[in-house]
Amino acid sequence: MNPDLDLTLQRVIRAPRAAVWSAWTDPSSFEKWWIPAPSVCRVDRLDVRPGGGLVTRLSDDGVDFFPHIDASFLVVDELERIVFTNAIDSAWRPASPAPVPMTAEITLSDHPDGTDYRVIVRHGDPAARARHEELGFLDGWGLVTKQLAVLAESRPTR
């Protein structure tokens, strides 16, 4: 972790890793938490494997949907780690994403109360990191992580 280039977030989710993983890998679950409410998410593509795509759309009214993210998964270690970037789109073409290019690493590990959920979002330069922070990284990613936790914690355990 480089504090000049990276932003981080950590939360204990009171659910097993399998529930958190499912919320990340099932499109119908993913769209319930990926975008801060009250906005609505539509998943166009969620192919959680190395080289797979992540394409979502955003709507403020539930009717008109606009592009949100077009990214590629780089690393997927089942139940442990997901790494994706918006610097390469879902067709594996170089991208110039707005508002900032980033690579996000999500790690899941066991915790006595459920799952230790950690996010590191890496940026190419301090200006991109600062821009992402100014745009509300902690509020936005914090809110969707809370939404993820609510969803995962509401699932019955086996």
Rank of each mutant, 00 (worst) to 15 (best):
K146Y: 14
V83H: 03
D64L: 13
F73P: 00
R42N: 12
D26M: 03
V150S: 14
A18T: 10
V144Y: 00
P67T: 03
L9T: 04
K32S: 12
A37S: 15
V43L: 03
N86S: 07
T145F: 00
I13Y: 00
G53L: 01
W92S: 11
P126I: 11
D139Y: 12
G62F: 01
P50N: 02
D110R: 09
P3D: 13
D60V: 14
V20M: 00
P112C: 10
D60R: 15
L143N: 12
S29Q: 13
G124E: 11
K146F: 12
A149L: 07
P16V: 04
Q10N: 15
R14G: 12
F84E: 07
R14H: 15
D60I: 14
V20F: 03
F65V: 06
V55H: 07
R14N: 15
L151I: 00
P67V: 06
V43K: 01
A152M: 03
R14F: 11
W141C: 02
L46M: 03
L138E: 15
R11Q: 13
F73Q: 00
I120S: 09
L143R: 15
P38M: 08
A15H: 04
A15M: 02
M102W: 14
P16D: 09
K32R: 14
P67A: 08
F137E: 06
F84K: 06
N86H: 04
V63P: 00
P36V: 11
P97H: 05
Y117F: 15
A149Y: 11
D6S: 08
L135I: 14
D4G: 09
D60H: 15
V100M: 14
H132K: 08
G53D: 04
E133P: 11
G114Y: 06
R131Y: 07
A15K: 05
L148Y: 02
W21F: 00
F66N: 15
N2F: 06
R158M: 05
I106L: 13
R122V: 11
A23W: 03
L148A: 08
M1C: 14
I69G: 14
A128T: 11
I82G: 02
R118M: 02
D47N: 04
E31W: 05
D139L: 13
V121F: 10
S28P: 00
R118T: 10
Q147V: 08
R11A: 08
P94Q: 05
P156M: 06
A37V: 13
H123D: 11
T8K: 12
L138H: 15
C41M: 08
T25S: 04
P50T: 01
I13E: 06
S109L: 05
D4K: 12
G51Q: 01
L148W: 10
V119G: 00
T56M: 11
E105I: 13
P36E: 04
P3M: 09
D64N: 13
S90W: 06
P36R: 08
I82E: 00
H111F: 02
